[in-house]
């Protein structure tokens, strides 16, 4: 098993365990018997051609998609169909979406405050303090009382990261966080993610930003047609991909 050699920590203290997970959309198999272990503090980059199942995989980890077969255990809780289990997992798993999905009718600060107040039950003052602290961390505290539509795409995505962090999750999932951004805004979001990685956050990122993968990833996982084809440390993966499909994929994204 390649992951055992690459990442001993993943075996020691897995915080996410994905076992034999299958997901179908009608006749289309999005995930086909996928196995993945993520250790505490590990940073994983998922890449692969579109339709390969990488987004579906991370969406299964917080049960936004329901897996059809196999087992997913997050922070010791198995994802069943019980809402209590699902929500206790979601509290520990932050997610950042390609399209930001900020709440347009709430200010930046309110976007960050709502879930901690309603789900974690903290006071408004505490939620505001926490929101401002994290907005400062993503260098956007001066926009706290603006509405999302008044911000640039890069700023909105950084707000989305802060919003997820306000729940104080143990794991962060990123679903192509820079794909919807203008090129000049990609860096500010990646810088934020790099910083987060240096703080020791466990991260699973679907991204094609290979510079980011080289800088922070402990493992790069290459998926194709619903299966994990390769996993390796970034240097090995980029220098010497084993499968033909990974070679073809890398050729296409690194011109």
């Amino acid at each position: 098993m390649p992951q055992e050699t690459v990442s001993g920590t993943a075996q020691a203290a897995p915080i996410v365990v994905v076992e034999n997970v299958t997901k179908r959309f009608g006749a289309f198999t999005a995930l086909n018997d996928v196995n993945l272990r993520v250790g505490k503090g590990e940073k994983i980059v998922l890449c692969g051609p579109s339709g390969s199942g990488k987004s579906t995989l991370i969406r299964c980890i917080n049960h936004i998609e329901k897996h059809d077969g196999g087992r997913i255990v997050v922070d010791g809780v198995e994802l069943s169909h019980r809402l209590a289990d699902i929500n206790s997992v979601r509290c520990e798993v932050g997610m950042v979406f390609q399209s930001f999905n900020l709440f347009p009718h709430l200010t930046v600060a309110e976007n960050c405050m709502l879930a901690p107040m309603k789900v974690r039950g903290i006071s408004q003052a505490e939620a505001r303090a926490r929101a401002l602290g994290l907005l400062r961390k993503v260098r956007i505290q001066d926009q706290a009382d603006k509405y999302p539509a008044q911000l640039s795409g890069g700023q909105q995505q950084r707000v989305a990261i802060a919003r997820a962090l306000c729940m104080q999750p143990k794991i962060m999932l990123f679903d192509e966080p820079t794909s919807a951004l203008d090129p000049e805004m990609v860096k500010e979001v990646l810088d934020t993610m790099v910083e987060l990685a240096k703080d020791g956050m466990t991260m699973v990122c679907v991204t094609h930003e290979m510079g980011f993968a080289r800088e922070v990833a402990d493992r790069v996982i290459f998926m194709d047609r619903g299966c994990i084809l390769e996993e390796a440390d970034p240097e090995t993966f980029f220098r010497a991909p084993r499968s033909e499909r990974a070679k073809g994929f890398l050729n296409q994204i690194i011109h």
Binding site: N62, N87, M95, F97, S99, N101, L114, K118, V119, M167
Partner: peptide, 26 residues
Amino acid sequence: NKGQFEACQALALSTYDTYRHIVLPQ
């Protein structure tokens, strides 16, 4: 937008809070 519901799910908001604070106001 479907993304609004997904953001609420990801933040573990209950169905009540999702509709009361996010969906109905919009």
